[in-house]
Design a protein around this nucleic acid. Structure first.
Lengths: 197, 197
DNA sequence: ACGAATAAAAGAACGTGATTCTATTCCGCT
DNA sequence: AGCGGAATAGAATCACGTTCTTTTATTCGT
């Protein structure tokens, strides 16, 4: 892929990211994406053979942007590092950060849900990659917890986060409740609790 | 609603349930539903103003059928009652049963996921109703656990179940793993565990 | 620097499936 | 009998993703 092509490609995904800041994934049309990113419809389809793949790529771009911001933040304030504080605190911080990002970009939350439930193999592939990256961050924050238990805990927390996003984006709960769900489940699965709490 | 209309309505939903036994929700077409249930397309739309509502109604019908079967089973084998065994056992039994039902009807699993992420207010309404019914069954099985903790536990387990269904239906894990996820999370959130497990 | 190849542009055309509309016929009721 | 609300049958509409066609740049090997 030539540099010009890479530029074109990322111009497209950036356009979609911009659009997702103000509209929902399913009201974004391929035509509009092509137009707004100054590319012909055929070209758009050369780069992204189907809409879900385009959206998945945009989601990945958004994610990368956030990771970079996170890394920069860490350099500035090492006290918020994934190693600061006790396990529960660290993990909560990690997930709360993700939730807050979704709060700022509700259409990204919808998209996340849509992609998670998407059967397109290409999309699944990008999901698997993203979850691998994510897993390592979570396991880092859970350092000190036995592997099997960490796996289960992150499954439970991740599932709760996704479910809370679903409930939030379908107006069944408010964002504050969604956030609290995630925090509470973190504590539930991570804290050693006395035999009768 | 006249009895004839009730009959017509349930003939439609039964047709959809039948179809869901062999095809995925999105390859079910409104035309076919109308035809197979011996009703005109316009009539179908009179009863169900949009496809998701029809699917939601079918899901509800399937659910009811299962609950009835469950109730019958209980009458026959009281040892499997929601009150038999310790808490963990009871809750596990409850969720495993649901998972197995989805295993038998994989397209219902897909539909469940699709409905959960659906924004149509009518669909959300039926979901809320179903979750209320479900909540009471879960709380019954969790008798003896403090209310707040029970709420959290069922949130975590329910979320894990949904997420596992998603992972399964998108071929990211096998059914056995999905099942194990749910069981393991049940144990994780329900058992009192020693301070260093 | 020249002529294939390959990529991009521009936009028309296609296809699918949900939804809506129209004209007609049927039923239950008084 | 006769009125009004269902139901029928099926055509018509519509939105959008996807594909195709034609024309115009680029790229690249030599």
């Amino acid at each position: 892929m030539t540099p010009a092509q890479l530029r074109r490609r990322s111009r497209i995904t950036e356009t979609v990211v911009e659009m997702l800041e103000e509209t929902s994934p399913d009201s974004i049309q391929m035509r509009d994406v092509a137009e707004r990113s100054g590319v012909a419809l055929g070209t758009l389809y050369r780069y992204f053979p189907a809409k879900p793949q385009l959206l998945a790529a945009a989601m990945a771009a958004w994610n990368d942007r956030l990771s970079q911001r996170l890394a920069a933040e860490r350099r500035r304030r090492p006290d918020r590092d994934a190693r600061a504080g006790d396990v529960v605190e660290r993990v909560v911080r990690l997930y709360v950060r993700q939730m807050k990002a979704f709060q700022r970009g509700p259409y990204f939350a919808r998209l996340e849900v849509e992609l998670q439930t998407c059967r397109d193999p290409f999309v699944v592939e990008t999901l698997v990659e993203r979850s691998a990256v994510n897993r390592s961050a979570v396991l880092e924050a859970m350092e000190g917890i036995p592997a099997e238990r960490a796996r289960l805990a992150s499954l439970a927390i991740g599932s709760t986060m996704l479910n809370s996003l679903v409930l939030w984006t379908t107006d069944r709960i408010r964002f504050a409740e969604a956030l609290r769900n995630v925090e509470d489940v973190c504590r539930l699965v991570l804290s050693d609790r006395p035999a009768s709490s």
